[in-house]
């Protein structure tokens, strides 16, 4: 099994602020890997670097063996990134938005149509896709964006808090879809989350990040065992040290 993401001694400075401080982790092909950690831990920064939006200050990140600095355009062809706080073009309809996005990955009309259909199913928006995005609620917009991130069957989906803003039912729906996608389509997922329950059910492996460094890594079961905790929330509290 090859590596989807290989992050090595990654450092990122924003002026005087060190957001990532020697972060290293590896995501295997076909797994769901979660980054969890308190606010400001550096999750979003790490995902943005993997997605070629930000440049590392030092260290290296490889996606399917290609370097985020030197081969950014190759990486962009195989990933899709769902930002933590994202919007869609408000004067386009949901369909128009999905079609616009699908056209970047292929020119084949059939494939575009297929992608949009997939997205319609994932989002569960149905008839509302004909309406302008500006008429959507926050959760509807999030579902549209999650759908667009998955519809093109990227080799790696980078999802920054995919279920933030979704109600319980839709969170469960989206989680189920992500899991199903990884199993059926061979998609690799790198995600971040605050929701321990979500991470525990969804992720094959997780990394606990604090102040830009990994403080614990492993499968949810391994982590619980190592610190003798009954759930990930407890692991988190013990490792970060506020019990």
């Amino acid at each position: 099994m090859g590596l989807a993401v290989e992050c090595n001694a990654l450092v990122k400075d924003f002026g005087d602020v060190r957001a990532l401080d020697g972060l290293s982790f590896q995501v295997k092909n076909g797994e769901i890997y979660g980054l969890i950690g308190p606010n400001g831990a550096g999750k979003t920064t790490a995902l943005r670097i993997v997605s070629t939006l930000l440049l590392p200050t030092s260290g290296s990140v490889k996606v399917f063996g290609q370097d985020v600095v030197d081969d950014a355009s190759e990486i962009r062809r195989v990933i899709s990134y769902l930002p933590e706080e994202a919007g869609a073009y408000k004067n386009l309809s949901g369909y128009e938005y999905l079609e616009f996005m699908a056209k970047f990955t292929t020119e084949d009309k059939e494939v575009i149509k297929e992608s949009v259909d997939v997205a319609a199913r994932i989002s569960g928006l149905e008839e509302r896709l004909k309406d302008k995005v500006k008429t959507y609620s926050k959760g509807m917009k999030r579902r549209l964006l999650v759908a667009r991130a998955l519809m093109t069957k990227p080799k790696l989906a980078v999802l920054d808090e995919p279920t933030s803003g979704l109600d319980v039912l839709h969170s469960v729906h989206v989680r189920g879809l992500i899991k199903q996608y990884v199993e059926n389509q061979g998609v690799t997922v790198l995600l971040s989350s605050h929701n321990m329950l979500e991470v525990e059910h969804l992720c094959d492996r997780v990394a606990l990040i604090d102040k830009g460094k990994i403080v614990a890594e492993g499968s949810p079961a391994e982590l619980k065992k190592s610190v003798n905790a009954s759930n990930l929330e407890e692991v988190f509290a013990k490792v970060v040290g506020f019990v």
């Binding site: 070629t52 939006l53 355009s73 990134y81 930002p83 073009y89 996005m101 990955t105």
Partner: peptide, 13 residues
């Protein structure tokens, strides 16, 4: 509208 980040990760120059 927070669409820039998505746009910049698309496979387009």
């Amino acid at each position: 509208e927070k669409t820039l980040e998505t746009l910049l990760t698309l496979p387009i120059n």
